[in-house]
């Protein structure tokens, strides 16, 4: 399932039955369709640069692969985007689930409540085997009763990704797969694949693959730490930083 890029005139695409078939499966796209993509239903990420790189935003459903180490603000980014999507559902009293499949810890209720997420709509599936985790992610994504399924897994095979992608498309929801593995798997049948890294206050996002469109240069989003409580960075913090350095030096 390799994405082929053809600069081809539209009619040729329809003439050749193989090409036509590939186009129907969205494995082949023409340069013009990248522009058309903008008119399609896309979900704005809220960042102009990112939207531009993604040809208007995230696809409206499917599987998104996020390559990052835990703690770069990856969940925060997706929760903020999906939350806007969910506003309409919540207004009509239609409660959809947020599903966490084998997270690296326990989701923090206080953080989620501060994000205005009803924690009654939260489902945590943990202590499972890999097969069970994937099965539940698939069921959740397919059910149409979930806004997003967050899945933490090291590696997935092509078949597993394909299954999840199809079920997310079927249930019109997102399956967001976080991994800290640095191994690049180029040929996975994903809707979107990105890598995230953070340096101080900037998050760098590299688009490894998108369904219709080119891979892009890395984009930098400025996401400084937003302190909500009144006590800000102060002298004590500096003092603590010194202490921590000292203790670690002594450890080393």
């Amino acid at each position: 399932m390799i994405i082929l890029c053809f600069y081809t005139v539209q009619f040729e695409l329809h003439m050749n039955p193989i090409l036509h078939e590939l186009a129907r499966k969205q494995w082949v796209w023409s340069a013009t369709s990248a522009k058309q993509q903008k008119q399609k239903k896309c979900i704005s990420t809220g960042f102009t640069e990112l939207d531009k790189a993604l040809n208007a935003g995230f696809p409206n459903a499917g599987m998104i692969h996020v390559q990052t180490i835990t703690g770069c603000g990856e969940l925060d980014l997706f929760i903020n985007i999906l939350k806007q999507q969910n506003v309409q559902n919540e207004q009509s009293g239609n409660n959809k689930f947020w599903v966490f499949v084998s997270p690296p810890g326990v989701p923090n209720a206080e953080y989620l409540l501060a994000q205005h997420i009803d924690i009654n709509n939260l489902l945590v599936i943990h202590k499972t085997t890999t097969e069970e985790a994937l099965w539940s992610a698939e069921q959740c994504a397919k059910s149409g009763a979930c806004i997003g399924v967050f899945l933490w897994q090291k590696r997935l095979s092509q078949l597993q990704v394909r299954k999840l992608e199809l079920s997310a498309q079927h249930g019109q929801s997102y399956c967001i797969w976080f991994t800290d593995s640095k191994v690049k798997q180029a040929n996975l049948p994903l809707s979107l694949s990105i890598s995230m890294t953070r340096h101080k206050n900037d998050i760098a996002i590299q688009i490894n693959k998108q369904r219709v469109g080119w891979t892009q240069q890395s984009i930098t989003l400025h996401r400084p730490f937003n302190c909500h409580t009144s006590i800000k960075r102060n002298k004590q913090a500096h003092r603590a930083a010194k202490i921590i350095n000292l203790t670690q030096q002594s450890l080393n």
């Binding site: 489902l123 599936i125 069921q139």
Partner: peptide
Amino acid sequence: GLSLISRLMSKLGESKVQGL
């Protein structure tokens, strides 16, 4: 949603499907 939860619970067991 509710039938999804029944399905998950019956396959995985109630201890693996939790809320917050």
